[in-house]
């Protein structure tokens, strides 16, 4: 069984109904550790040793955050800068994260189609996430496509329920190890992989 560490970074979690729903669902999955960074480090003073111990105890790492200004909130960047140390996460002797899985789980106000060359935001999510992908590669981690809940302002309660359940399913499958990396990587979003898998299983 893979143990999953969700590194959740949201400076205004109390106002995010989408993330509340996602985390509620995630909390139910066995083997998932929820780590609320803004609650733990309100002063941005990240405890590096503690974080390294947490990373060591998990096989799947999730950077779960709202997609603020095309990136992660400041504390997640702080976490990455401080914890992924040279000589530990990368560089000589830095192979403590080798072969762990990592992906972004993000929520965005803008709809999915606006993140395209001809869309309002002009670039795709994959393009905006390149720093994360290369960080993962630098640390010899296996990066998976992102899990994205886009267009959050327009989500109805029913939509929200579907997304939350999907997130729960995703974590459960990753936890069970019920996936093939090559297959997963063919998709832009983890959401798409789950959807097609569900299609395929349908008679």
């Amino acid at each position: 069984m893979n143990r999953i560490l969700i590194l959740f970074a949201h400076p205004r979690f109390e106002k995010s109904r989408v993330n509340r729903a996602l985390l509620q669902e995630a909390g139910r999955v066995p083997g998932v550790t929820l780590h609320d960074l803004y609650e733990r480090y309100p002063d941005f003073n990240v405890d590096v040793e503690r974080e390294k111990a947490l990373l060591a105890a998990h096989e799947v790492i999730v950077w779960h955050h709202p997609f603020y200004m095309y990136g992660a909130p400041a504390l997640l960047k702080q976490w990455i800068d401080l914890v992924l140390e040279y000589g530990w996460a990368h560089g000589p002797g830095g192979d403590f994260l080798k072969d762990k899985f990592v992906f972004n789980a993000l929520t965005s106000g803008g709809a999915r189609e606006t993140y395209a060359a001809d869309g309002f935001h002009r670039f795709s999510f994959e393009e905006f996430l390149t720093p994360f992908r290369q960080t993962a590669a630098l640390c010899q981690m296996v990066d998976l496509p992102p899990f994205v809940v886009a267009g959050t302002y327009r989500l109805t309660e029913a939509d929200l329920k579907i997304h939350a359940t999907l997130y729960g399913d995703l974590l459960a499958r990753l936890s069970r190890g019920d996936f093939r990396i090559e297959a997963v990587r063919r998709f832009a979003f983890l959401n798409d992989w789950l959807a097609e898998d569900a299609e395929g299983q349908r008679p």
């Binding site: 205004r12 709202p66 997609f67 095309y70 929520t107 106000g109 803008g110 709809a111 606006t114």
Partner: peptide
């Protein structure tokens, strides 16, 4: 008003980047 989604809600939803 940092990271306020209420304020955002008045804008066309596609313009915002936050949730």
């Amino acid at each position: 008003h940092a990271w306020d989604s209420e304020v955002r809600a008045d804008h066309p939803p596609d313009a915002g980047t936050g949730p």
